[in-house]
Write a protein that binds this DNA or RNA. Structure first.
Lengths: 236, 236
DNA sequence: ACAAAAGTGTTTAATATACACCCATGA
DNA sequence: TCATGGGTGTATATTAAACACTTTTGT
């Protein structure tokens, strides 16, 4: 049994991926019983803090346990400590069963992470009772996790404003101009002109065109691009 | 005696004001004894969380107790929970005396507030064993409070980028163009061209020129301006 | 008269926006 | 040959940046 720092402080992770047309958030399944019998719903991956770890370490641990990946940059974005964030009876019962102790209030420090939603990540769906849910289709989650996701999206948008390289963390290594544009449109919340967007890409030295093109598509094959982080870091 | 939610979660406030040429941060004095005898140093105003209050409420309470002002917008910007943020022996002894209990770790949720450093605020210096210290002259503080201030300044800079009205919260009701420019230079960390700055002001409908001018200065008297929040809110 | 800060325009460069048609490919 | 999405250029408007001298006031 791991020693906890205490049972008042937790972290939750909003892990975001991009499937080519939608942003998706990684949720874990939760089940229990309440006055209406058994229920199944979902929550953000999270954990209480262990005795010997920092907040950031706890967030990395949760992400690593769930996805197997290490070294994913996690960013703390907000702490939620409303006294009625555990107002829902179902949540209280679930917590006290999980912790086998009376729980008064849990303050949670929320992190977001940006990952490439590749085949390995997709496989989580079965293996870990986790699921990649499009952010537009997230149902009612445990605790205030819907609020946490909403705030995460705001923070991600702000972050992208002053660090464009985050967009490329969401894309596969090779991507088309229209994938990049679709993603940018989702993040900025508005449509972007195709020609102006191509112009902009061509002025970004760190978005390098490849010779490789799409295959087997029923239309003109799109060129692939890659993101060159070295050039990005030196070019500003 | 007030009931605490627990002794693991606190809030700290980075309260910032502008004296016309420097940003200043509000610090409170701390004294105690360590192996070298008595010491006096400073810390950020802060508090553990009470049983019946949210994080934001705790921050407002601390600010109100110290300054007497209510309704100052406080903004949560980061949570500090490194396990060695209470690494310093002096801090541990001080905490355990203050709380009369063993303390393992305290996670603190940090807020910043922006206030007008007017005469009433200045008077705090004596009355409350508090002091307005220029951010460039802050010595070594308790805990990780130097780090917290540094992060607060980063957050304020980011905030000002997408909400210019914050600048005007730091200025007196009537201010000159050069006060506004000096403040903007401090926040942005670079000098601004005087002519371009005047041009920009004149294009901001919410910065309204007054007929009143400086008096008794040994040079051409500067015009005063005021900030009109109504116009600001409707003009974008 | 002088010291000290206030105030004032123009030119140029960079960036953002609007807009319509042809191209390549598989079915 | 048709349906589908890929790819391209020019003109205009907006915003940012560079730059030097005159004005007002108290001492």
């Amino acid at each position: 049994m791991v020693r906890l720092a205490n049972n008042h402080i937790s972290i939750d992770c909003v892990v975001l991926g991009f499937d080519g047309s939608n942003l998706r958030v990684l949720l874990v399944k939760r089940s229990g019983k309440d006055e209406n019998g058994e229920y199944n719903d979902m929550k953000l991956p999270g954990s209480l803090i262990y005795q010997d770890e920092d907040l950031d370490e706890a967030a990395m641990r949760v992400l690593h346990e769930l996805t197997g990946v290490k070294d994913v940059p996690l960013q703390q974005f907000k702490t939620f400590g409303s006294k009625d964030r555990t107002r829902n009876l179902r949540d209280i019962v679930w917590l006290e069963r999980a912790q086998q102790a009376h729980v008064e209030r849990i303050v949670t420090v929320a992190y977001f992470a940006i990952v490439k939603l590749d085949a390995a990540m997709q496989r989580l769906v079965n293996r870990e009772s986790a699921e990649w849910v499009p952010v537009g289709e997230v149902g009612t989650l445990a605790f205030d996790h819907n609020l946490i996701i909403a705030e995460a999206l705001k923070s991600v948008r702000r972050e992208v404003e002053n660090n464009r390289s985050i967009l490329f963390d969401l894309l596969p290594k090779k991507f088309t101009a229209s994938q990049l544009r679709t993603l940018a449109e989702i993040i900025h919340g508005k449509e972007l002109d195709v020609r102006n967007f191509h112009k902009k890409i061509s002025q970004m030295p760190y978005v390098v065109p490849l010779e490789e093109r799409q295959k087997g598509v029923a239309h003109r094959a799109a060129r692939y691009f890659k993101f060159d982080r070295k050039i990005y870091n030196t070019s500003r």
